[in-house]
Nucleic acid binder design. Structure first.
Lengths: 151, 151
DNA sequence: TTGCATCCGGTACCTGGGTACAGGCTTACC
DNA sequence: GGTAAGCCTGTACCCAGGTACCGGATGCAA
């Protein structure tokens, strides 16, 4: 009666029904009320929460981070300035910008390979004049893991 | 005697020894010769091949794609213009550029959230004037999977 | 009250790129 | 020839973020 069935919520938010259970396990969704028979009955806001989760993921936050953010939003009393969305968004922004810079370097290398007309990596790597900086490129790899993670 | 031991190759290329076996299974490295006792003996070029693999990964190619590319390079006779490094590099470049554009949109959203001083996603999402395009952002998700995949 | 759609919980599986471990053989050096 | 380091195979596990399947129970309309 009052409350949405899991499928309704899932459909409205564009996610899989299993995902609701998964998010519940992960602490992203509160445990909803149940019908007498044990079926979940969600409040309407849940759809919004799901959209927010998806948006946050798209912004580069992991599910753990999203869980934290939702939590931080729920009880505002913590009030340390480094836990809120503000601070985290700034951090994430820096990460995304680093990632963009990194991808630009990658694009440059690809462009160089195309421009040079090189067609076989291994032989090309052995010759001087190969535009792809094989040795450096592997080292540069480092660890800029920021994954804006589109699914 | 003649040939490098697996650890020597792994160390020289900066990869794990297990990774050599893994690449062998995946078809990225040819099966090397063996000593009488069954130990692998690699030719010196293997190190170059590994560096090339790492570089290609960093350029955004998956291991399957790298395997194909190495193969394409090995026997040049196929000669269809769409199988070589050239064509694939172009495709990959377009993907990387799309990814960059996508990340820029994400960075813009993060910047907007910071500028607007919004501090709780869920309540903010409900109010008009929220700078984060929650509904659209989730839909935009689509599938721009290009993962330059560092790590 | 029957019948069908939906939902339940638990568990297993997927992708990609590796890494780790166990138990046993080889190699190299003294 | 002894012994330690190195290597072998096979198998299992890691990460994140889900997805799929199963047998059984519920919900709801006619």
């Amino acid at each position: 009666m009052n409350g949405l069935r899991s499928s309704q919520v899932a459909d409205a938010a564009g996610v899989n029904r299993q995902t609701l259970r998964y998010y519940e396990r992960r602490g992203l969704l509160a445990e909803p009320q149940r019908s007498l028979g044990g079926h979940r009955l969600y409040p309407a806001e849940t759809v919004t929460v799901l959209l927010v989760i998806k948006a946050a993921q798209r912004l580069g936050f992991t599910l753990d981070e999203v869980a934290d953010l939702l939590d931080a939003g729920r009880h505002h009393h913590g009030r340390r300035p480094d836990t809120g969305l503000q601070a985290r968004a700034k951090t994430k922004l820096a990460e995304v910008e680093a990632k963009i810079a990194d991808l630009r370097a990658i694009a440059d290398s690809l462009r160089a390979a195309v421009d040079a007309g090189c067609d076989d990596m291994v032989t090309c790597a052995g010759q001087s004049g190969c535009p792809i900086p094989f040795t450096t490129i592997a080292a540069t790899e480092a660890r800029g893991d920021t994954e804006a993670h589109d699914r």
